[in-house]
Simulated assay, not measured.
Amino acid sequence: MKLDDFLKEKAFSKYKNGIDRIKEDFINSGYERFLCRQTLVEWDDAKKTDIKEINAEKYVVNKNVASFIKQFSNIQDSDIAFIYPESYAPNYFMIQELVKYAKSDYIIENLIPEDETINHIVIFDCNNKEVIQLMNHLVYSAILGENFGGYKLLGEHVCYYLEFCGDDSLIYTMKVPNSLMHFQGYTTRKDNNPYVLYNTRKNIELLVGKGYFETEFELYRMLWSSFFVTFVAKKFIGLLLG
């Protein structure tokens, strides 16, 4: 969607303030094609992405990702884990009170050395149900917008990287269960904030440009094949929600 057309929409006019700072580069870099995509375009890209994955060579975890994932091997089957960023937000300070009841709380070693984001992981025994419920509310219960918790890569939630990877022919799009998913609770779009889109695309280009991933397709496959699979297996609550 054209950025100017996007900003004319009443619901998105709030993004006009300060947009001139990134507008020219946003347009010249081709980021408009990621902005508020039409549903039919998304479905078409999902089909093409599925075909590309079927025809691709078997995914092999690179050494940076393997090293990152290894640090979560200490999480037991009886544990429930949460990831949250260090922040001045009220949620962070309330979480610090709940951390007193945790088995452990420590700072995660980030995926790449350039990343200065401070991500915490806190681990609770699964029997500590009341604290876990409250923790889940503080970390992952946003009704609108982005949740407070979840792993942040270069300052942006990993779910955005899944939305904004692509090549010249398509934007890599996960295959949804069916076309009614929107009406079954998955209502938060990830492509309607031009500032987050801009920052995430710059981060993706940095990750590929510095050789952490050979292509954006490798990054996209890593998120689905290694990153999220590991976190689901290790009982991270709500990591995918963003």
Rank of each mutant, 00 (worst) to 15 (best):
D168W: 06
D168S: 11
D168G: 05
S169E: 14
S169Q: 13
L170V: 04
I171A: 02
I171S: 03
I171T: 07
Y172C: 02
T173R: 07
T173S: 10
T173D: 04
T173Y: 09
M174C: 12
V176E: 14
P177L: 04
P177E: 12
N178M: 03
S179F: 05
S179G: 04
L180I: 03
L180K: 02
L180W: 09
M181E: 04
H182P: 00
H182K: 13
F183L: 01
F183I: 00
F183N: 11
F183C: 00
G185N: 03
G185R: 00
G185W: 05
Y186M: 03
Y186R: 09
Y186K: 11
T187V: 15
T187H: 09
T188F: 00
D191L: 08
D191E: 12
N192D: 11
N192Q: 12
N193F: 06
P194V: 05
Y195M: 15
V196M: 10
V196Q: 07
V196A: 11
V196K: 12
L197E: 11
L197V: 00
N199L: 15
T200H: 09
T200F: 13
R201E: 14
K202V: 04
N203G: 00
N203Y: 07
I204D: 01
E205D: 13
L206N: 05
L207K: 02
V208Y: 09
K210V: 15
G211V: 14
G211D: 12
F213T: 06
T215F: 03
T215P: 05
T215G: 05
T215E: 02
E216L: 03
E216C: 03
E216S: 10
E216H: 05
F217N: 00
F217W: 04
F217L: 09
E218V: 11
Y220V: 00
M222P: 08
L223Q: 05
W224S: 11
S225T: 11
S225L: 11
S226I: 04
S226K: 11
F228G: 07
V229I: 15
V229C: 14
V232C: 14
V232A: 15
A233Q: 15
A233M: 08
K234S: 02
K234F: 10
K235A: 04
F236E: 00
F236H: 00
I237N: 12
L240V: 09
G242V: 10
